[in-house]
C-alpha cells in the first residue's frame, strides 16, 4: 500500500489522533501510561499503537522492560510539503491564527489550541 494511504488511514481515527496529541505533549510515555488515558481496552490501544507505528507516526523504543513511545512528525510534514508552497503556507497560517483568535474571544481557548500555542 502507498505509505501515504497508511498515514491517512491512521489519522482517520479519533483515538489515534488523541494518542498523537498526548505524545506531542508528553514524549516518551510508556504503553501502560498511554492505555490508562483512554476508556477502551488495553488491547484496543495496542492495536491503535500498531497502526500508528506501521506508518511511522510513532516510534517505539525499548528501555529496559518498558517501551517508550515518541511522536514522529515527519509523515505529517511530508503531507504538508506536498500541498503547500512557501506562499500558501504563510497565508494559511495567518488564516488559522485569525480563526483561533476569533474563536478564543468567543468561546475561550480550546484545550488543543492552548497546548499548541504554549509549545510553539
Amino acid at each position: 500500500m502507498d505509505p501515504l494511504d497508511l498515514v491517512f488511514q491512521a489519522l482517520a481515527h479519533p483515538i489515534r489522533r488523541a494518542i498523537l496529541d498526548l505524545l506531542k505533549r508528553r514524549p516518551g510515555l510508556c504503553i501502560n501510561d498511554i492505555a490508562e488515558q483512554f476508556d477502551v481496552s488495553r488491547i484496543a490501544v495496542l492495536k491503535h499503537l500498531r497502526v500508528l507505528e506501521e506508518c511511522q507516526l510513532i516510534i517505539v523504543k525499548k528501555s529496559g522492560r518498558k517501551r517508550a513511545v515518541f511522536f514522529n512528525v515527519v509523515p505529517i510534514q511530508a503531507i504538508y510539503d506536498r500541498w503547500t508552497t512557501e506562499y500558501s503556507a504563510f497565508w494559511a497560517e495567518q488564516a488559522l491564527d485569525l480563526k483561533a483568535q476569533l474563536e478564543a474571544s468567543i468561546h475561550g481557548p480550546g484545550p488543543d489550541k492552548q497546548i499548541q500555542k504554549s509549545s510553539s
Binding site: 514524549p27 511511522q56 516510534i59 515518541f70 515527519v74 509549545s119
Partner: peptide, 16 residues
C-alpha cells in the same frame, strides 16, 4: 513545557 518533557529525546524518522 512540563518537567517530564525536558530531557526527552525527539525523533524524526523517514524512509529514503
Amino acid at each position: 513545557m512540563t518537567a517530564t518533557s525536558k530531557n526527552q529525546p525527539q525523533y524524526f524518522r523517514v524512509v529514503i
